[in-house]
Design a protein around this nucleic acid. Sequence first.
DNA 1: CTTAGGG
DNA 2: CCCTAAG
Length: 692
Amino acid sequence: MVLKKRLEYGFSGCSVPVIPRGPRSVRKRGSHKKTLEDSRSCAFELLAAVAGKLLQESESSTSSNVAEGLHPSSIHNGGIKQEQLEKGEALKSECRDQGSWVESVFSSELAPRKRNLESSFGEFPRAVSDTVLEGTSVIPRSKISTKVRHDLKLEIPENKTAAENSPGKVEGGSPNCGDIGRQIKAEGNPNHNVDLTVAINSNSKDPMEIHVNITDSLINSDTSVQLPSYGDSVPNASFPRHKNNVKLRGRVDDENPVGCNVYRSKTRAIRPQTCIGHRRVRKLLASKYWKVAPTLEDCEFSDSDGCMKNVNRCRKAPSTSEVIQCLVPLKKRKLCNHNSTLARDPEGSSESISNSPEKGVKGEKTSPAKNLGRAKVVSSSVVGHQTSLKSRDSHVKFSIKSFKVPELCIDIPENATVGSLKGTVMEAVTAILQGGLRVGVVVHGKKVKDDNKTLLQMGISHNDDLGTLSFTLEAGSRIASQPPNRKEVPILLTCETHHQFSRSAAMESEVLNASFDPSPANNVVNHVETNHELVPSTHEVIKDGTAPDSRALVAVPAVSVEALAVVPVNQKTRRCELVQRRTRRPFSVSEVEALVEAVEKLGTGRCANIRIVIICLLWRDVKLSAFENTDHRTYVDLKDKWKTLVHTATISPHQRRGETVPQDLLDRVLSAHGYWSHHQHKLHGKHLINLL
DNA sequence: CTTAGGG
DNA sequence: CCCTAAG
């Protein structure tokens, strides 16, 4: 936005066409469809130049630069014209023509989405700068997929200690990281580097997938192994960083929340302009900072205030998290918010879900005091229950369905054989998966460091809510044996319930199926009701009450080897599917009445005497006096409701559905609407006259 | 953040 | 209700 405005007003020396602005609706429809076919020529070069500039600037600047877009001066220096910048498509195809890495930046693996040019202004050059920086100006490219699968099942007696609960075993052998390095080195060709991206994904449907992007690096003379996320944590001895043409580079994938935000009840997070290219870009950008990624040791992701905050705090490049935060689509962040809210409640246990401000047990936000009281009640009831059941079944059962591993990047000579490529990939994957992992246990968002505590002592029992339990996979013994202040490679594995994907960096897990004892009926049912949209299967299971005793919790956690401390994992659609829509809360007649009354008083819209936001307040006041707890009615809701009310009032009664609004109310709606719209027009007319 | 309007 | 461009 900033950029665009600046451009519109032009830079001396550049002929900058000003895009005429039509009415909002017109602009909205057509603004992005323009194409400038003749501006393709040197966009890439120009952008690269700009990137260089920007890169220099970015060295010392903060992320705000990124958020705000490319600095005008950079543009000016780069000689970029607006039309070129606006030609998102042109840029893309340009890049594709060159077969460069940039293509992967701009072409999405997902379905193409609407591009937002304005945001691309700000981000594209950044991406290029990354590319330039990395020296991976590339030529050929290919993709490889392989599959791996991991299935773990755990059954742990409750009286086992946390340490015992963390067997630290992940199936498979364990060549260490150093082996990868050497292996690839052996096959390396000093003349060419192939940028090989390995993405390992797995979920319930797809076993682990490994995508490999091979790109021939022309520029990259830096032959060191780069494992940004490992950073310095990997001892050089075992993972040579020099004189090796293997390059492992972390990358962030699309569709991945980066972290959790602190929940702000009334704050809607900045929404990113959705553009796959941008995401790619952002992620590349973010990846730059992985090199300074903190470790789990440094910041506990599930920690009280939400992982994003922690990531934020820990990262040496403070800008990244801000950037990333902006990159995370709101939906996902909402999820994170939800989670962090949950995680924040230290004693919530099974009740913590319900303490989400957006969704209480009654589906409404409740006061802290109320929450507190309720939580206490619930937890005590849980305790009572678990003691009564203790003798019957003292095992906590759950299984970890699979791990998920994010993308990796590997450089390999282009003249390497396919066989060696396979071997290389295999080495990399196995090394990553098996490099001696350490399991951490996180209960109620806090990492349990005392290995001698029993599960029961930690509140982990077979009939407890396992949603508060999660695991982390951390670097294996080799790295773990480092001095504490050394950075650790937190390979995170989580085992969480749906509502608890505190998606710190690389955490990833999913409950495929969960069943509980039907006994704590009230508690569980409440829990379910408030979350049934999120976890339908759980809902059914619990409602049936037919759940087996075992309370098996099957989770699909992820091993993120890479993104580890900072960044998100590859999580495509499924997480999106889980995005929670607010529960539908039809307006009651009394609410409608209150709304009508408020609108009658205050009017609607911009030109009314008082802005509708005041209506919101008034509305809330009215509601509070009547029913309490109406924070879930935002001004947007009220606006929408008013919209539908007007519509309802307009249509014939037999066409109306849902709760029937009394006709007299509808009449009032119509009259108020007519009055205010008339008033608005009058005011608008006056305004026009004044202008003339 | 708010407004407005489409989905 | 959600989303998001525009202000």
